[in-house]
Design a protein around this nucleic acid. Structure first.
Lengths: 210, 210, 210, 210
DNA sequence: AATGAATGAGGATTCATTCAT
DNA sequence: AATGAATGAATCCTCATTCAT
């Protein structure tokens, strides 16, 4: 490798540098949260000096928000349900749950960081938290629509309750795995969750007592 | 007023000072997490200088661990189930769920801080995280025993699954309320959760397919 | 629109870019002084990136020196006395003073920045300070010559004293206006100053006691 | 000197430390202005680490404001007119002028830093500037009262004009000395200034044309 | 039991400047 | 003629912690 090649690597590849910074920041922030993520640590991990990080991102807030956005996209890609509309509602709920479970095992950084941000209550809320809550709301809308399709008899209130419970179970089981270690069989727990969400739908239907 | 009386106010009441520090630290840590809790901020909130905080607590780790311990006790007191063993298993599960829901609404600092700590993954784990996981394990044992009593037909694996699911739902619904605001009716969601946990118990019984 | 036309706007007009940079730098430096003028701030104000500023100016020192030079020229143009040698010495001094007063109201950046630079005492003197002191010396020479013409009886020492006093009064009255706001009637104060400088000339003449 | 003595020097003498910091800051700020005064430089000059400076002063703004306040007091002490009310008005004005001239030669830091601050025009004005303008206003009031005593025939407008002119001359002559070097005989120039201020008072009296 | 004073390490961010393109 | 990307040094300031009193 000639010197000019070695130099070119260093010089002027903004896109790649940005990715390297985001990779490093995602890893650190996924482990330590917002405050635990120091620019110096990101710098050390990605190899670029702090001042270069500030060329790509306005400030730490901006960086973390970008991390959330990108992590969400990566996670979404990992979830994407095969669009075959086969099977009855229980089978389809179960497949979806399995997909989400696998995605959380494979790409846990997004939700881990997101939940840490979501639980915080600072006077001046970090932008990353807002972004997380927004993409989460987007995801919720998708689930809501699936719910409407699978359970057309449910009214909006019931759909809302069902969606809330489905997400809450997913969050809680994720927390369980994070605290109890990798031995946890998340897919199995999500299968149970799917069955119970399905049962909840049945119970929420008109004519059944709440 | 004698000198000793004038002095007594300033001096001597170590217990009260300790409480003031813990109060301040609990509030700040419940809002901002471990890293977001600076000794200076605690000092400002409780009115005692940083050096006094170090007189009562070895270091920040120690302080946060103490916060977790005390918050857990406060939360436990808020939960405590009326010991009347009346009603069938569904009724008793439902009452317990309602109690937990109310306790989380009234004393959310414990779980909020605890979850933030639990989600972190740093090389040198703060002692507060360990303490949280320990008291959580204690709570889990209690739930396990209640489960064994209510559902004597379940084997240990099923009890474990049931307990896990019950706790996960509680965590997830708590997160839901933290992110969606105080308007969320946590008690109603916990009632649904109780019913579904009960249903899960039924399904996990021998003779029913998983 | 051909490509070269489209390009011309972006490319080529070095003179205009230079002006825009100088305009921005003059405004910022006139408000914040040497250290308070960051290249980034100038860049933000003029719309050109920092690297472009360095294409036009060797370094920050060079930029500030250029600002001083240009501001001086602008100020000089605003002062320029109508060359009619009419009236007696008092009238002529008064007209000059009025002109200077107006120029300081209209183009205060030059003197404001210049005085800030002049008052500083750093080990490595910025070139801008040297330039300011030079153009100020040039201006002083002009005033000296006017003085010699108006008061041919005065010896060189007296002329020097008179010039010094005239300039000091102008500087001080400028400071007064800068600190007391735009309501100050600088022209009126300069008229008084002109009268007193004229009186000073009278007193400095041979035969009058100092 | 025993070790405990050497240690005691370092430990816990807040008043002395504060003085050392102010001394260092006054010297540096008097030479380089607000922006040119870095906490690191002050730290290096006074021997205390930056964090100790922040124990004594909230932030840089607070430090510079304190410097202004203390420098003003030192300067005031250097000016203080001997209270003997002897002599006619010209003599008394002349004595005062000589005192001020000497004080500016002996303790120039106050006015140098103050004028630098006063000339700046930032969006968020440093507190030091406000403090300088306040103490300056205080000084102006004193001069105003002396003026009323010496020239009881003058109306308030005339007194105001006279005071303004007296201060402007002092400021301008100070600038002259700062830019032209220590060879300048400030006392002589102030004597001329005193005479002309006295003459101005005469001209401003009722019955004389403005 | 408490605290005023101090401190080294590290926090985020901005600085003036460079250089390949 | 111009600029996107980079960078080391410096910026102000906060951090957790200590220790003599």
């Amino acid at each position: 490798m000639t010197r000019s090649q070695a130099t070119r690597r260093k010089r002027a590849n903004g896109v790649e540098s940005r990715q390297r910074i985001l990779d490093a920041a995602a890893e650190i922030a996924g482990e330590r949260g917002y405050e635990g993520t120091s620019i110096a640590a990101v710098s050390a991990k990605c190899g670029l000096p702090p001042s270069s990080i500030y060329w790509h991102f306005k400030d730490k807030d901006d960086l973390i928000a970008a991390v959330i956005e990108r992590s969400f996209e990566i996670w979404l890609a990992a979830v994407e349900v095969p669009d075959e509309r086969t099977g009855n509602s229980l089978e389809r709920v179960t497949v979806m749950a399995a997909n989400v479970a696998k995605s959380l095992v494979d790409a846990p950084d997004f939700l881990r960081l997101g939940l840490m941000l979501a639980l915080e209550r600072r006077p001046s809320e970090p932008r990353g938290r807002t972004v997380f809550l927004q993409v989460r709301e987007t995801a919720r809308q998708k689930i809501t629509e699936v719910g409407r399709t699978l359970f057309p008899d449910l009214d909006e209130g019931a759909i809302h309750t069902l969606t809330t419970y489905a997400i809450a179970g997913a969050d809680g089981l994720f927390v369980h795995r994070e605290t109890s270690g990798e031995a946890v069989d998340l897919v199995a727990m999500f299968e149970l969750h799917a069955q119970l969400v399905h049962e909840a739908a049945r119970r929420l239907m008109p004519g059944n007592s709440g």
